[in-house]
């Protein structure tokens, strides 16, 4: 019988996420995916940035690194190069990964380094109290768009695909079992895997925009017009393997 408790740090629980927040559902899907793949906790490194979703790393009993705002992919790139044998999973949010850390996202995708990046998209900066995110839908309100948002928002999956990511997928917290499968596939994929997870922020974002109860917000995700599932998959040279070729060349072995 699968037990989440085997994978989290019980002294850190219960987690700090708000009532009804979808992040806990992603955490569960992630732990089930890890269990499904039979990965050893010692061989997993989880790297996150700053924001609600990035607090996830504190709860998982593996090698965890909670970095600076927007930078988890850069830290993870260094770690993966140093230790290619580790499974490195990056946890980021829509603000962390698409705004302040957007540059790292496109370049990590371009390099096709073997990291699995889960981007939690809850459409808002939750931890700082509900400011505009690059994913906040037009016309919605936030603390910094008191008259409604006039900015178009990112399609994170199209962005990463265009930048060269070789596994691009989108899941939702409402479809948590397919999400678990997507995460498992992403981890197994050799190269840069990007999984955008549409999640919910009922307390901060939902309340201000009258988006309904936590359950209603979950169910609304089922009706998303964005494509879900595996959106793009390709093969290409993986960065750490390609660098092994550089080492061989520099050492005159090729």
């Amino acid at each position: 019988m699968f037990d989440y408790h085997e994978y989290f740090r019980s002294e850190m629980m219960p987690h700090m996420w708000c009532k009804g927040c979808g992040n806990g559902i992603v955490l569960k899907a992630l732990l089930r995916a890890i269990h499904r793949l039979g990965l050893s906790k010692d061989r997993i490194a989880m790297v996150s940035g700053i924001g609600c979703s990035s607090r996830l790393t504190g709860y998982v009993d593996c090698n965890t690194l909670h970095t600076t705002h927007g930078r988890p992919l850069a830290f993870a790139t260094g770690l993966k190069l140093a230790r290619p044998e580790l499974t490195v999973i990056v946890i980021t949010g829509d603000g962390d990964g698409l705004a302040i850390g957007g540059n790292h996202l496109i370049h990590t995708a371009r390099r096709n380094i073997d990291l699995t990046c889960l981007l939690f998209n809850n459409q808002i900066y939750g931890m700082t109290g509900g400011q505009l995110a690059p994913t906040t839908p037009e016309a919605l309100f936030s603390t910094t768009t008191p008259y409604g948002n006039i900015e178009p928002n990112f399609d994170a999956c199209r962005l990463v695909q265009a930048a060269g990511g070789t596994f691009v997928a989108r899941g939702t917290v409402y479809r948590a079992i397919p999400l678990e499968k997507l995460i498992a596939e992403g981890i197994q994929h050799k190269g840069f895997s990007f999984i955008e997870v549409l999640t919910t922020c009922p307390e901060i974002h939902g309340r201000r925009n009258k988006l309904g109860t936590p359950a209603e917000m979950l169910q609304a995700l089922a009706k998303t017009t964005l494509p879900t599932g595996v959106i793009h998959q390709a093969s290409g040279p993986e960065y750490t393997e390609a660098y092994d070729g550089i080492i061989a060349k520099a050492q005159g072995r090729t």
Binding site: Y4, F8, M13, P14, H15, W17, G20, C21, G22, N23, G24, I25, K28, V173, Y174, A176, I177, L218
Partner: peptide, 8 residues
């Protein structure tokens, strides 16, 4: 079981 965000 799957959708409880709080492992409760």
């Amino acid at each position: 079981d799957v959708l409880c965000p709080d492992f409760a």
